[in-house]
Amino acid sequence: MQLQTPRLTRTTWHGAGAAGLAVVLWALVPLLVAAAGSVPPLRLSALALLAGALGTLPMAQRRRRTEPPLAQRHGVAVYGGVSLLVAGAVGACFASLSLAPAAEAALITYTWPVLFLLASQWLARRRLSPATLAGTGLAFSGGALLVLPQAMAGGFSGAWHGYLLALAAALCWALYSLACQVPGWRLGERMPHLLLIASVITGSASLLLEGVSEMPSAPALLAMAALGLGPYGIAMLAWDYALKAPNGRHLGNLAHGVPVLATLFLVVSGVTPPDWRLPVAALLVVAGSLTASR
Results as ranks from 00 to 15, higher is better:
residue 47 L to Q: 05
residue 64 R to Q: 05
residue 99 L to W: 14
residue 234 I to K: 01
residue 33 V to T: 05
residue 68 P to N: 07
residue 57 L to F: 05
residue 159 A to K: 06
residue 139 A to K: 07
residue 273 P to Q: 11
residue 166 A to L: 04
residue 240 D to E: 09
residue 196 L to W: 04
residue 93 C to S: 10
residue 279 P to N: 11
residue 177 S to A: 15
residue 186 R to S: 11
residue 187 L to Q: 01
residue 219 P to C: 13
residue 168 A to V: 09
residue 162 G to V: 13
residue 53 A to V: 07
residue 238 A to G: 14
residue 65 R to Q: 09
residue 89 A to C: 08
residue 273 P to N: 04
residue 55 G to V: 13
residue 154 G to C: 14
residue 69 P to S: 14
residue 284 L to F: 02
residue 7 R to M: 01
residue 274 P to Y: 14
residue 212 V to H: 03
residue 58 P to F: 04
residue 170 A to R: 00
residue 169 A to E: 03
residue 197 I to N: 09
residue 137 G to P: 12
residue 26 W to F: 12
residue 191 M to E: 03
residue 20 G to E: 14
residue 129 S to H: 04
residue 60 A to I: 04
residue 278 L to N: 00
residue 187 L to D: 03
residue 5 T to D: 10
residue 159 A to H: 15
residue 50 L to K: 06
residue 30 P to Y: 00
residue 231 P to L: 02
residue 192 P to A: 00
residue 55 G to H: 05
residue 27 A to M: 06
residue 3 L to R: 14
residue 3 L to F: 11
residue 12 T to S: 04
residue 175 L to T: 06
residue 53 A to K: 01
residue 181 Q to D: 15
residue 275 D to A: 15
residue 40 P to E: 09
residue 150 Q to L: 12
residue 223 A to L: 04
residue 272 T to M: 13
residue 45 S to N: 10
residue 235 A to I: 14
residue 11 T to N: 10
residue 56 T to E: 08
residue 269 S to R: 03
residue 145 L to E: 05
residue 74 H to N: 12
residue 31 L to C: 10
residue 246 P to R: 13
residue 173 W to H: 09
residue 238 A to D: 14
residue 166 A to N: 07
residue 148 L to V: 15
residue 291 T to D: 02
residue 246 P to H: 06
residue 80 G to A: 11
residue 71 A to F: 09
residue 288 G to N: 10
residue 278 L to Y: 00
residue 277 R to N: 09
residue 251 L to Q: 09
residue 90 V to C: 03
residue 211 G to P: 01
residue 89 A to G: 15
residue 294 R to Q: 11
residue 235 A to C: 07
residue 210 E to V: 15
residue 122 W to M: 12
residue 47 L to W: 06
residue 176 Y to N: 03
residue 25 L to S: 01
residue 24 V to P: 06
residue 80 G to H: 15
residue 2 Q to E: 13
residue 7 R to C: 03
residue 190 R to N: 11
residue 171 L to S: 11
residue 19 A to L: 06
residue 61 Q to M: 06
residue 131 A to G: 09
residue 73 R to Y: 10
residue 133 L to C: 06
residue 269 S to L: 05
residue 234 I to S: 09
residue 192 P to Q: 00
residue 163 Y to F: 07
residue 134 A to V: 14
residue 49 L to M: 04
residue 51 A to Q: 10
residue 273 P to D: 13
residue 115 L to M: 13
residue 7 R to W: 11
residue 218 A to P: 10
residue 289 S to K: 02
residue 208 L to D: 05
residue 107 L to T: 08
residue 187 L to T: 04
residue 160 W to R: 07
residue 83 S to N: 00
residue 84 L to R: 04
residue 54 L to W: 03
residue 102 A to C: 01
residue 123 L to C: 14
residue 155 G to F: 01
residue 288 G to A: 08
residue 144 A to E: 01
residue 243 L to N: 00
residue 1 M to W: 14
residue 197 I to W: 12
residue 62 R to M: 13
residue 282 A to W: 08
residue 142 G to R: 07
residue 258 V to N: 07
residue 115 L to N: 11
residue 138 L to A: 06
residue 251 L to A: 11
residue 43 R to T: 15
residue 42 L to S: 08
residue 229 L to S: 00
residue 18 A to G: 07
residue 222 L to S: 05
residue 260 V to R: 04
residue 144 A to T: 06
residue 81 G to L: 12
residue 272 T to F: 14
residue 193 H to F: 13
residue 208 L to A: 12
residue 121 Q to A: 15
residue 222 L to A: 10
residue 182 V to W: 01
residue 59 M to A: 15
residue 237 L to S: 02
residue 265 F to N: 01
residue 87 A to C: 00
residue 114 V to P: 01
residue 185 W to E: 06
